[in-house]
């Protein structure tokens, strides 16, 4: 009888233990979720998109008429996509990591590899390096602002290795080449960093930008009022060629 009484008390306490009446605190991960948010990725004759929680590949060997080739459903909405050596790197809204799919055939084959960054991060890849920092506007882990750009060696795809970090707060734009990182924030403007030496080579303090793109020996940088073009024939000594007003 005593045992039954104890069990009964336990059952009475169950609602307290399981109660969901206290609201779950809302974690604002992104202010805006849209279709096509993860972008469009092309690799050879394959085009990849994220349709909500589905990865979709299209065959674009007939460029004007993409034909759906494969579709793979994942357990959460897909936030961003990028390519690394015929691997499609997929960040999902689970915030805790990145899945790597072998897409060399155009179909999705999970490699079982999981990289240690996710939707909360801005990522730039160059060669066998990944440059990772906080993504502006995201607040997944408010207690853990990066205040740096972390550099990973990803040549051993299964085990990315943290190779170093470069101090830089609130990165708004970032792009890299083999030995040079171009990185920008509001305070420091455009900064050119020598990666092996982890040193700032030069900077353009008044040229804060929020989009950076390299094409050949040119670096394009979007500032608030102009689209700037730099000659980076000497990567660590960019020469400003033009400032194209809006």
């Amino acid at each position: 009888m005593k045992k039954i009484y104890i069990r009964y008390l336990f059952l009475l306490s169950a609602p307290l233990l399981m109660s969901t009446s206290t609201p779950v605190s809302v974690r604002y991960v992104a202010p805006y979720k849209t279709v096509a948010q993860a972008g469009i990725i092309i690799d050879g004759n394959n085009l990849f998109i994220a349709d909500n929680a589905d990865l979709v590949s299209y065959d674009i060997s007939q460029p004007a008429t993409p034909a759906e080739k494969d579709r793979q459903h994942l357990s959460a909405g897909i936030d961003s996509l990028y390519m690394y050596h015929q691997n499609l790197v997929v960040c999902r809204d689970n915030f805790y990591g990145t899945d790597v799919f072998d897409v060399s055939s155009g179909a999705f084959n999970s490699s079982g590899i999981y990289w240690p960054w996710g939707s909360c991060n801005k990522v730039a890849l160059y060669g066998d390096k990944a440059f990772v920092t906080d993504k502006p506007g995201y607040s997944c882990t408010g207690e853990n602002p990066d205040n740096s750009v972390r550099i990973y060696n990803i040549n051993t795809t299964a085990t990315p290795e943290l190779a170093g970090s470069i101090y830089m707060e609130n990165v708004s734009g970032m792009v890299a080449t083999e030995n040079t990182l171009y990185v920008s924030n509001e305070k420091d403007g455009l900064v050119v960093v020598d990666i092996p030496g982890n040193t700032v080579k030069t900077s353009f303090p008044a040229r804060a930008c929020y989009q950076l793109q390299i094409a050949g020996t040119r670096l394009y940088a979007r500032t608030k009022s102009t689209l700037d073009c730099y000659d980076i024939s000497n990567p660590q000594k960019p020469v400003l060629i033009s400032q194209f007003p809006n």
């Binding site: 849209t34 279709v35 096509a36 948010q37 993860a38 972008g39 469009i40 990725i41 092309i42 085009l47 998109i49 674009i60 460029p63 004007a64 993409p66």
Partner: peptide, 16 residues
């Protein structure tokens, strides 16, 4: 929202 270029073709999102 998104674009990608391959050769002479541009792929874009027009809403959905």
């Amino acid at each position: 929202r998104a674009a990608a270029i391959k050769g002479d073709y541009l792929y874009v999102s027009n809403y959905d």
